[in-house]
């Protein structure tokens, strides 16, 4: 497992404020676009990866050796079902609340904008960055020559609110993950994020 270097919360909070400043100038749409755009750029900067088998990949990702697990500890709950126990943004969110107070409402407005215009999967503005990063990084990982696919199932905000996909999507995603809805909710009691990682047959 790679060494975990802790960020300084002073920096984390200032990045949230940077996005708020962007929203002052360019509105919620600008906020969303910048958050998604920078996550895409970040993902394009990471090194590409190749694995021979699905098990090789699953071991690397759960041992923190893959670029996908650079910023979070990932657990495997079924062949294609994966969870993140602690949201990698939770410290930054806690520090923002501790130092500054209530989150600026623009974060929820941008989250709603993302959920309505991109995909209904974000529980907080940071999810936009995180999920975009995962989606783009997945494109840089190949398993037996096939690109990794990623799909978000559930994300839990610091308020406890869980973002879930529409019923029709949820059924397909849970089936692909090989877990029932009840098992999915049980996982979300213990974890902050539930998602699918797979390769097309």
């Amino acid at each position: 497992m790679a060494e975990n270097i802790e960020s300084n919360p002073f920096v984390d909070v200032s990045v949230f404020l940077f996005f708020e400043d962007i929203s002052d100038k360019q509105g919620v749409e600008g906020f969303t676009n910048y958050m998604v755009g920078q996550a895409e750029s970040l993902a394009k900067s990471v090194p590409e990866e190749e694995y021979q088998t699905w098990d090789d990949f699953a071991n690397a990702v759960t041992n923190g050796e893959s670029v996908l697990s650079s910023f979070e500890h990932i657990g495997q709950i079924s062949e294609y079902g994966f969870v993140t126990k602690v949201c990698p943004f939770s410290k930054a969110i806690r520090e923002y609340i501790k130092r500054i107070g209530n989150f600026n409402p623009v974060h929820m407005e941008a989250t709603d904008h993302y959920n309505h215009t991109i995909q209904p999967s974000a529980a907080h503005s940071a999810c936009m960055m995180h999920q975009t990063y995962r989606k783009e990084v997945a494109k840089r990982i190949k398993i037996a020559g096939k690109p990794l696919q990623y799909a978000q199932i559930a994300a839990k905000a610091y308020t406890g609110k869980i973002a879930l996909p529409p019923e029709s999507w949820k059924k397909v995603l849970l089936e692909k993950a090989g877990i029932t809805e009840t098992q999915g909710f049980m996982e979300m009691r213990e974890n902050s994020c539930l998602y699918l990682l797979y390769v097309e047959d």
């Binding site: 960020s7 300084n8 920096v11 984390d12 990045v15 949230f16 940077f18 910048y34 920078q38 996550a39 750029s41 970040l42 900067s45 910023f71 979070e72 990698p88 943004f89 930054a92 940071a126 960055m129 995180h130 990063y133």
Partner: peptide, 11 residues
């Protein structure tokens, strides 16, 4: 992870 965003954001 939030802090890492700085570099791609600034870019």
């Amino acid at each position: 992870m939030m802090d890492i965003a700085i570099y791609s954001l600034v870019d």
